[in-house]
Amino acid sequence: MFNNRRRLISLAFVLVSLLTINFAIRGIQHGRRLRARPDEPIQGWMNIGYVAHSYHVPPQVIHEALGLPPQPDRRPLARIAVDTGRTTDEVIANVMTAIQQFRGARPPDPDAPAPPPVEPRTP
């Protein structure tokens, strides 16, 4: 009885340890991604303001892409899609295209940090 209980607790200890290591690895991976500051995937819950803020583009770029007047609009993209008779995926695709076009047309930011130098590999 006592040994069975001890065995069960040992098993629980091993399981908890493995899960903790798994969470730690995933947490470190997400932390690294956070430092790299990549673009967050656009989702239907986001509104124009959030997307513009996240992608560092003027909100007007997204307003124009969606054919909306340049007024503050707090509606989520999913709601805009419903209101304008489109699917959320179509709206997101339009927004992405506009952001890429804006970034392609914009001259490079002189204040942007330079990419890290590539270290030569030693054999």
Binding site: F23, G27, H30, G31, R33, L34, E40
Partner: peptide
């Protein structure tokens, strides 16, 4: 403020 989903995932794991 431009990375809430990634931040949430990292904090959730930790």
């Amino acid at each position: 403020s431009d990375q809430v989903q990634t931040l949430s995932a990292a904090l959730g794991n930790f």
